[in-house]
Design a protein around this nucleic acid. Structure first.
Lengths: 221, 221
DNA sequence: GCTTTATGGATAGTTATACTCTCCATATGA
DNA sequence: TCATATGGAGAGTATAACTATCCATAAAGC
């Protein structure tokens, strides 16, 4: 197919597709003449993935490129791929806590990882995010959340076990690579959305039922 | 304190603080004369919260303003506040799936919520995100993830129960409001970071141990 | 065969966001 | 008293993500 059909089928405008081609988010089609190229279903699929990463996961274009590059390099093992996706997806966090709080958080995280027996590289980008988040939680007085790390980690471990198993069982290496990307990034959105809904449900159950008389914004059930 | 000290103590530059004042992210200090104002520890704290939302949660300034407005309106119940924070935090997702996939996803989500007995408003923003995410998962061939909704929801419910309880037990209504914001937004980062670490750990355990000789981070298989 | 539309490729322009800079009249502090 | 800081307002800047315009050529419709 040519760019027009690719555009129609994906819902992405032709100029935007051209932009993605320039930015390396989409490989160019096979040229049949100097100004005609042939795009395949693989291009369509890739384009859908790009839109998912940009529109749904809100990754910046530069990060999407990083993700896709690691996806296309076939010299990586599954574990290597997972690491590459993590690095592409997790930017080094802007420092948002003061150094004191960060130091304490670092110690807490180190201890936590050791207690858990988690085999992770000490410079994994997620660790920096975790440290910064905990440091901020402490300086904002929500140490209770930071102290529940194990509760969250238990669930995270269960998720990870299922997810890694599911991904590893795919037959085709290309599918594996793509699945890592999709599962890591869209899975996060899924969990976040469900958590918000659960908040609504639980707050309705715990807070409206027992006492409180009339709310306005909400229908009282 | 005056703006200089606020800047030194928060690590935020004076021009940026002025920008936040203009944008309504920070209430102005009490004027003692036409060009002298007095800032308090509450300002410092608010500023730290703003930086956390911007640097750590990557909320755009306009969203931060929405969040803080709902935080400052004291006419809302706890449940109302939670809803307001959700709305401020969850942008309507860009359509990233085709209409067919979205329709199917909508049905799946409706059924799922009913089966769970979750009392949520049908136009909760998280539902739209959930629908769009599931639609994309389907059109990218990862229906297995979308089919595990209950696994994720079980965990989300456990999280929510703890979190809502913790927040509701705060004595001061102002603290409650702020806790909702912090817990909702930073809690998500916490969970996401732990999930990534768990991925690393689990992939090391499941994939390196069984067979493969020595990985270093790359190659082999 | 001829006109209209579409295409690949390149370059320039646009919009939005998040600051950052410059002024100015006034206030503070050494 | 005089350099420095302040509140407030307006203009300027950097970056990201498109969007528009050109052009020579190719395909499609008549």
């Amino acid at each position: 197919m040519r760019i027009g059909e690719l555009s129609r089928r994906s819902g992405v405008s032709v100029p935007t597709i051209k932009f993605y081609l320039r930015e390396g988010l989409l490989p160019s089609g096979e040229l049949t003449s100097p100004n005609q190229a042939n795009y395949t279903d693989a291009h369509l699929r890739r384009l859908q993935l790009v839109r998912a990463l940009i529109d749904l996961a809100h990754l910046p274009v530069a990060r999407v490129r990083d993700v896709l590059e690691s996806l296309d390099s076939d010299s990586l093992s599954l574990r290597g791929r997972i690491g590459a996706v993590h690095r592409a997806v997790t930017p080094a966090p802007q420092p948002a806590a003061d150094d004191g709080a960060r130091g304490a958080a670092e110690a807490q995280v180190r201890e936590f990882i050791e207690k858990r027996g988690w085999a992770v590289e000490p410079d994994a980008p997620a660790i920096a995010t975790l440290v910064e988040t905990i440091a901020v939680l402490h300086s904002l007085g929500r140490e209770d959340l930071a102290d529940q790390l194990d509760t969250y980690a238990d669930a995270a471990e269960r998720f990870a076990e299922r997810e890694v198993t599911a991904v590893a069982s795919r037959p085709d290496p290309d599918q594996i690579a793509e699945s890592v990307v999709i599962g890591t990034i869209l899975g996060e959105r899924l969990i976040a959305a469900l958590r918000l809904l659960a908040h609504e449900h639980v707050s309705a159950r715990l807070l409206d039922r027992p006492s409180a008389p009339s709310h306005r914004t909400e229908t009282t059930e």
